[in-house]
């Protein structure tokens, strides 16, 4: 275990303790705020797993989030599906993974990388939002779908009813923690090493026998599947879904969360999502149209001042102290 891994685990454990302690100080409403923010944190982690590990930016990630949400909503609102909660979750994951597999197959095996990939996924996001608005007989159009019941899983003797604030908070915290831990395991193991090799030099990685296109495709599918899961979870917590949840603004926001939190760290994006959403609520409360302007400025600041995210401030400070220490 390297020092970097130890740092990560320490941070992870700190986060877990904070999540456990928080319910003792917070009321029900505050718990639901953190719960919803955590779901977006999971969404950010899913983008980071792809973007951070491959260096290729998917700019339409909200398409998968929204697709998962709509699948979940349609299945649970149908009423005739048995075990609707569980089937909805699995269906959401499968639908997002399938869409990613189709797009990813054509692009990765067509040799598309870098900027081209970003643009095609950007267009996918635009189209998904338009489809969600105009296909109103299924998606409810502009106003979306409402009245989605809270998650209720009753399977093999285990009964989970997430109508209550605390129960849903605990449930989401556990899921987010498990998924982030799994993603971290994947990306520090062989899988992540191969991805790093592909990012560094794809031709050489391929010469060593790695099927680069397939590996990128699988990573993209995993990333999309988790985004779909996050979308499904959000929908049954919020009780509604609207076209915004598959749109460009959410794709933009998730990119900012990852970029601010620190690309490739998995935890950073979760923290980024929590902090920036808090800021967004404060700013939007006095002028809603100001927020996109600030988002735009954030992008420019990140690019010129903090290319490695906010957390890199600490490692930079550390580096400065290390440089000065031997001189003493």
């Amino acid at each position: 275990m390297t020092e970097r891994d130890r740092n990560w685990l320490t941070l992870f454990a700190t986060g877990l303790i904070l999540l456990i302690v928080y319910p003792f100080f917070a009321d029900g409403y505050q718990l639901t705020v953190i719960r919803d923010a955590l779901i977006f944190g999971l969404f950010a982690a899913s983008l980071d797993f792809f973007w951070g590990r491959t260096g290729i930016l998917c700019f339409g990630h909200a398409a998968f989030f929204g697709l998962g949400g709509y699948v979940m909503a349609l299945i649970t609102l149908n009423g005739s599906v048995p075990l609707a909660g569980l089937v909805g979750l699995l269906g959401a994951i499968a639908a997002a993974a399938l869409l990613a597999a189709v797009i990813g197959y054509f692009l990765f095996f067509g040799g598309i990388r870098g900027s081209y990939f970003t643009i095609v996924t950007l267009a996918t996001g635009v189209i998904c939002q338009q489809a969600a608005i105009s296909w109103s007989s299924v998606t409810g159009g502009d106003s979306g779908l409402i009245g989605i019941p809270p998650l209720e899983i009753d399977f093999a003797g285990i009964r989970i009813d997430l109508g209550q604030d605390l129960a849903s908070y605990v449930f989401i915290s556990i899921i987010v923690a498990i998924v982030v831990l799994l993603l971290w395991q994947l990306s520090r193991g062989r899988w992540g090493k191969v991805l790093t090799a592909i990012q560094d030099n794809e031709v050489r990685a391929a010469a060593l026998g790695h099927n680069a296109s397939l590996r990128l495709l699988l990573t993209f599918v995993v990333s999309a599947a988790i985004a779909g899961l996050a979308g499904a979870l959000y929908v049954c917590m919020a009780g509604l879904i609207a076209p915004d949840l598959s749109g460009l603004l959410l794709s933009t926001e998730v990119t900012v969360w990852v970029a601010v939190g620190g690309r490739g760290t998995l935890l950073g994006p979760v923290v980024g999502a929590l902090v920036i959403q808090r800021a967004q609520q404060e700013i939007s409360s006095f002028n809603p149209s100001l927020w996109p302007l600030i988002l735009g400025l954030l992008f420019i600041v990140i690019v010129f001042a903090l290319p490695d995210g906010v957390l890199s401030i600490f490692s930079r400070l550390k580096a400065i102290f290390r440089k000065t220490e031997p001189a003493r």
């Binding site: 930016l57 149209s289 735009g296 954030l298």
Partner: peptide
């Protein structure tokens, strides 16, 4: 001009500018 060698940064920065321009026009 400052980002010719950093394609990813160009994407992020120009997207940021796009948002700023849109919002400024709206304001």
């Amino acid at each position: 001009r400052h980002l010719y060698s950093r394609p990813m940064s160009t994407i992020l920065a120009t997207w940021g500018i796009s948002l700023v321009l849109q919002q400024s026009l709206e304001l």
